[in-house]
Write a protein that binds this DNA or RNA. Structure first.
Lengths: 230, 230
DNA sequence: TCGATTGTGACACAATTTTGACATTAATGA
DNA sequence: TCATTAATGTCAAAATTGTGTCACAATCGA
């Protein structure tokens, strides 16, 4: 299933313990010990969850969380904190954290909460059973990989279909290149960034009446692509 | 939005307090005081969330939750409990609860957690608060990077969106130029001071009816900028 | 193997971001 | 009060960066 968790904790023992236990659960863990490294990792790779200590060297957890928010990263955050103080909890929750655990915590409880967070956040994942959609005056049949256009029937490839499905599931929202890469190409594949553009080009050639004035497949500079549908 | 919450709590005062506060948040609350009634309601109507005390007359909360699970009701459950005992928490979480609060709890924390649970459980394209904000009579959608203004839809760039988010998170507070530079541009970047002003100018052009008399985006000489919202 | 699909690099092109010039406004002190 | 100084407002041009597009190379599947 390849679920990736970014663990940010500066106490070495605790970090190692958590890492070990999460790995035993089958998760893939990247563990770092300070806020800046956390931010860098979060920016450059994709994670299903961030477990974030509040008190951290270099940059505290709340700030890391805030910056991820500002950068529009859509990752659930589970805060850890030595403080039991309600204000801290509330600050964390307001900052966009999905959950909060106070140290010392029971390991089993952590594992349970991690499981819950990942499960509930995965609903947005795309493995839907959409098999028939319409874009403009074209209709796409995902079972036969065929597109009916006004000028005839075109067949699309598997990757084109995946991309199309992803964009359709997030229609009217920008889907980041990162997310496209992750969900269509998979985490560990490194492909040239031109590849995505080429696929978009192909889709546009099929669906856009005028290539120079895309109506459906919009590019959003610096972010990704968006499929506009009424 | 019509979000329905089933509240199950046998202490009358606490139940009324919670009910009142949740209603003030705009939720529709059905409140009952025992497990059997809870189960009946859960079976006959649809709820977005169940807030469930553990110790209840007639049938305890854990059992109610378990039965809902067995009956395949896919409702998030937030447990309340007087016991701080970890085993109880774990039992609750294992039983399929999404979250857990120990009495006595802070009301604001309850409201935040309720908000989070509902938000994350909502299927489809529900927009979370941070993804959708309002300034004056404009609304900003951070998923599509678009701003709806009275005169039409404008799209904003990534940096403009980041700046907006930062100002919004600190609304009615002055955000220093340094903080803006750090959080939007990154700590090691070295740019001309005019750059920030230019971005503010762009935001004002979008949101301010009268550029000469900014209502929302105030500059605070020598310090930074402030987003004023009611 | 062959044909279809997918990936690469070059280059042109377009949008955003940055810069610097200059105008304007606010604070300071004689 | 007014001149002085410094910070901000504003614009348009320049620099930078991301994207569009193509031809071709590599890879995959039957």
């Amino acid at each position: 299933m390849n679920i990736r968790i970014l663990l940010v904790e500066d106490e070495d023992n605790l970090r190692d313990t958590i890492k070990l236990n999460l790995e035993l659960e089958g998760y893939h863990i990247i563990a770092v010990n300070n806020g800046l490294d956390a931010l860098q990792y979060a920016r450059s790779e994709r994670f299903n969850l961030v477990i974030l200590d509040i008190m951290l060297p270099k940059m505290n957890g709340l700030e890391v969380c805030q910056r991820l928010q500002i950068e529009n990263k859509d990752i659930p955050v589970l805060f850890l904190s030595a403080k039991n103080a309600t204000e801290d909890r509330i600050a964390g929750l307001k900052m966009g954290a999905q959950d909060y655990l106070t140290k010392p915590f029971n390991l089993e409880e952590l594992l349970l909460r991690v499981g819950i967070l990942i499960k509930t956040h995965q609903k947005g994942d795309f493995q839907s059973e959409i098999n028939y959609i319409t874009i403009g005056n074209c209709s796409i049949d995902f079972q036969s990989y065929e597109v009916k256009t006004p000028t005839g029937v075109v067949s699309i490839s598997k990757k084109e279909a995946m991309l199309l499905k992803l964009l359709y599931e997030k229609k009217n929202q920008v889907v980041s290149r990162e997310e496209i890469l992750e969900k269509v190409w998979g985490y560990d594949i490194y492909i040239n960034t031109r590849t995505i553009d080429n696929f978009m080009l192909n889709l546009r050639k099929i669906f856009e009446p005028n290539l120079k004035e895309p109506v459906f497949f919009h590019s959003v500079r610096g972010i990704g692509y968006k499929l506009n549908l009424a």
